[in-house]
């Protein structure tokens, strides 16, 4: 994994100088030190298994229990075929857990690594990449549930499922600038963390995760049409469910990617130097 990463990083590096200065600030240090963010994330994951039998697998179990409960209750309420609904909810929750982390867990990045930021010469961008990389590790944990569902034939596997890998890469790339913004804002405004955490519960309700877009009509469609989380969740969920990609959703996510990099890189370059004072 690390080898593949460093290989692709080395092939990208010569082209970095064509990127705007602000983007380079966020990209160059991590690409020069791939072993650092992959290593820190890995060691922390290993550490989190210490003295527990299941460790981070508890998140996976949470996901499994949640999917089961939702399928039993809402599947019946919506009178949907059990298998189809279970696949929909499980894949949606896998996609949601990362999208949700964008504005919650990932915002705590600098606070989690404050001892490094305050005392070491390690570049702050490294920790942003570490935190986002940990989302991939979390995703791998969730894939256990996915693998079980595929094995039991609940989730249909198709050629489009392979698109999950590029989708994860895009999700990784979109997470970097969002984390850069959120981590700085959370460090400066300590109320934000609580505020956003409670807002995310509402977003969880209004994003089509346990209900489908075909179930609502009229003005309520605005709930997902103007909801960025809908596009992020759908972007990951479609390949997970083996569905062909929706060009509209893919283009919205790619537009979001470009917008986030422009805004995030500029914001990070402007305020990155103050983080150490706010910690």
């Amino acid at each position: 994994m690390a080898f593949a990463l460093s290989f692709s990083a080395n092939s990208i590096k010569p082209y970095l100088r064509y990127l705007p200065q602000s983007v380079q600030v966020l990209v160059r240090p991590p690409l020069d030190n791939i072993h650092l963010w992959t290593g820190i994330a890995w060691i922390e994951t290993v550490q989190s298994y210490r003295r527990t039998v299941l460790g981070p697998l508890w998140i996976t179990i949470n996901l499994a229990i949640f999917t089961l409960a939702m399928t039993l209750i809402y599947g019946a309420l919506f009178s949907m075929p059990t298998r189809e609904y279970a696949a929909f909810v499980a894949c949606g929750m896998i996609a949601w857990s990362w999208s949700n982390a964008l504005l919650t867990d990932l915002g705590n990045t600098f606070m989690n690594y404050s001892s490094f930021v305050k005392n070491s010469t390690i570049n702050k961008a490294i920790f942003i990449w570490t935190a986002v990389y940990k989302q991939i590790i979390n995703l791998c944990h969730h894939m256990i549930v996915y693998a079980v569902l595929v094995a039991f034939g609940v989730v249909k596997f198709s050629i489009y499922s392979l698109l999950f890998f590029p989708a994860v890469v895009v999700m990784f790339l979109i997470s970097i600038p969002i984390t850069a913004i959120m981590a700085i804002l959370f460090t400066r405004y300590r109320d934000l963390q609580r505020l956003v955490a409670s807002t995310m519960i509402i977003f969880f309700m209004v994003t089509p995760i346990f209900w489908q877009t075909t179930m609502i009509s009229g003005w309520r469609t605005a709930l997902y049409i103007f909801n960025p989380f809908y596009y992020l969740v759908e972007f990951l969920r479609m390949p997970l469910m083996g569905l062909p990609p929706d060009p509209f959703i893919v283009s919205v996510v790619l537009a979001l990617l470009v917008f986030c990099w422009i805004a995030g890189a500029a914001f990070y370059k402007r305020y990155e130097r103050y983080v150490v004072f706010w910690l």
Partner: peptide
């Protein structure tokens, strides 16, 4: 620059001595 201000950054109580060395090697 070698900055020896706080070497314990990121070191957790659950790490063994070896892991601590490995971790610091990774960092610095």
């Amino acid at each position: 620059v070698g900055c020896l201000i706080d070497m314990e950054a990121g070191v957790t109580a659950e790490m063994s001595g070896y892991e601590c060395i490995k971790f610091q090697h990774l960092l610095y």
